[in-house]
Design a protein around this nucleic acid. Structure first.
Lengths: 144, 144
DNA sequence: ACAAAATCTTAGCAAAGGTTAAACTTGTGT
DNA sequence: ACACAAGTTTAACCTTTGCTAAGATTTTGT
């Protein structure tokens, strides 16, 4: 795994920036979901969902605004930009594929939910495709 | 996660601590591997492996020392404590299972390597067991 | 209308992990 | 012996993500 002496070791590129991107994805995904469910998304709802203080939410949402993913007027509800919506949709799609895949493997609902949230940020396009195909094959297998 | 018996420190912070545990696991796993390959582990080897500066390595290794996972004398090579070795073994086992699983799914070596690095920290015991069983079943299938 | 409740912002702190620059230690070659 | 290269540490700083405390705003109930 360490790759001998002079390996590029691209596997370990998960830096601070990558971690920040994961948080951004989790947030936009959650914002989209809350808006779809409640009509609007308030910071308090995110704080409750993620189990963090509302102050942390404010700061993270400020970062999303800075990065052009979200918009919100002072004391107003949080909304997504077109870019934010795109990211949210892509994240949710990936999340759903990972979740379905774990379910196909026989994992329980609760664990599949938890694990898929952790895994979704670390699956490449190739792996995601393999997951999707596996789910499709399993689904066809059931239709006997 | 990293201790159990010798962790008298604050039990509050959550997500930040989870992330720190992942880094600790990556480090002890890498240290064990480098020692196994080269006989000793120097900070420079870790810096090269993870693609970060040696200063970052020094600081992270200091944290491992503080947490009782690693030991090193000034300007000396890095070694693992019994606790560090245990964590390294468990991490490597989990890593190998995830890697084999992705390979069984038909993922290419390079991508399986990268993805397994990211995924290994997010699979529960239940999912890991399912991965292992899948690999075993696939291996048996090949022996026809 | 107005106080209370809910929500949001600002200020200030900590830990983890990242950086560069500069100083220190160790090992090697001539 | 001594200089130089390689490796390590320290200092100073940044960002992300977490916290509490305290202040500001909006909503709600009477």
């Amino acid at each position: 795994m360490a790759g001998g002496d002079t390996s590029p070791t691209r596997a370990f590129d998960r830096t601070r920036h990558d971690h920040a991107s994961e948080t951004a994805e989790d947030y936009v995904e959650a914002i989209a979901e809350i808006i779809g469910r409640d009509g609007v998304c308030r910071g308090a709802a995110l704080a409750k969902l993620f189990g963090v203080s509302h102050v942390t939410v404010t700061k993270t949402v400020n970062r999303l605004k800075r990065e052009g993913l979200a918009v919100a007027e002072p004391y107003g509800p949080i909304e997504l930009t077109a870019q934010g919506k795109r990211l949210a949709t892509a994240s949710r799609r990936r999340h759903e594929i990972v979740f379905s895949f774990l379910k196909s493997l026989g994992i329980s609902d609760a664990v599949a939910l938890t694990d898929s949230e952790g895994i979704e940020h670390h699956v490449s396009a190739e792996t995601l495709k393999a997951f999707r195909r596996f789910v499709e094959r399993e689904d066809r297998g059931k239709n006997d």
